[in-house]
Design a protein around this nucleic acid. Sequence first.
DNA 1: CGGGTTACCTGACGGC
DNA 2: TGCCGTCAGGTAACCC
Length: 278
Amino acid sequence: MPELPEVETVRRGLLQVLGQHAGLERVVCHRRDLRFPVPDRVLALRDRPITALTRRAKYLLWELDGQSLISHLGMTGSWRLGEVAARAQTAARDQHDHCELVLADGRRLVYRDPRRFGYLDSCATPALARHVWLRDLGPEPLDSHSFHVDWLAACCRGSRAPIKNRIMDQRVVVGVGNIYAAESLHLAGIHPRRAAGRIGRERLERLVVAIRAILEKAITAGGSTIRDFRQAGGSSGYFQHDFQVYGREGLPCRRCGKVLKHAVLAGRATVWCGGCQR
DNA sequence: CGGGTTACCTGACGGC
DNA sequence: TGCCGTCAGGTAACCC
């Protein structure tokens, strides 16, 4: 489901819910067969203060006083505040509520994931950067010190892959998924199928700027709500109203009026404007 | 190796 | 109404 803006929105929502001095009492798991089996070390996390909740790429990182819980939402994962304990016994648990973080004050943060593409792990916080899920990740797109035209040009040099595939590769830049790749390329005026290695530096610079601008705007809008994405508090984002190309195939381009085209690229639906993307 | 395709899983939706 | 095929925001295991 979520790309960087949605994960960031979830993170901010959870921080609101958690408040200042939240603590984790224990982790409960009703179903361990997510994308990868939930390891024992996740269930072993007990009685720890939640000292921070951060994000790396599309991963949420719960900082638990020296230990970190790593959560990826896959396509349909979500964290929401569950029923209070008194009601939890009467309210039937949703069949897709797989894990719960039981907080010291009795509240429960419930991990729901119908498709079970999400996954969880934990490790000592100092070892996070070496964790196999995190160690090969590229730069954060909103950090201009690490994500810049020199880096993107180096990643694209000699590549005959479509530029859309390149920017969705989490080793090149993190957080860009199918929606925001399409939107960024439209804003930059670059055809999604253009060979990455055949794009000039100036246009790559425009792409860097476009990715950053689109993601920042989407975060400000609280992410995009299509199908089932919701913030922790249940409210929806509204960036979907700003889509220029995603989901608009056959409709006129909002910039030049030409009918938007549609094709499958690397197995993903891709929309672009033949008039303003080259 | 780079690049493309398929699989993973469930639910929603459109067509007949 | 109901059945069936298709598709969905991510990633990784396969192929050539």
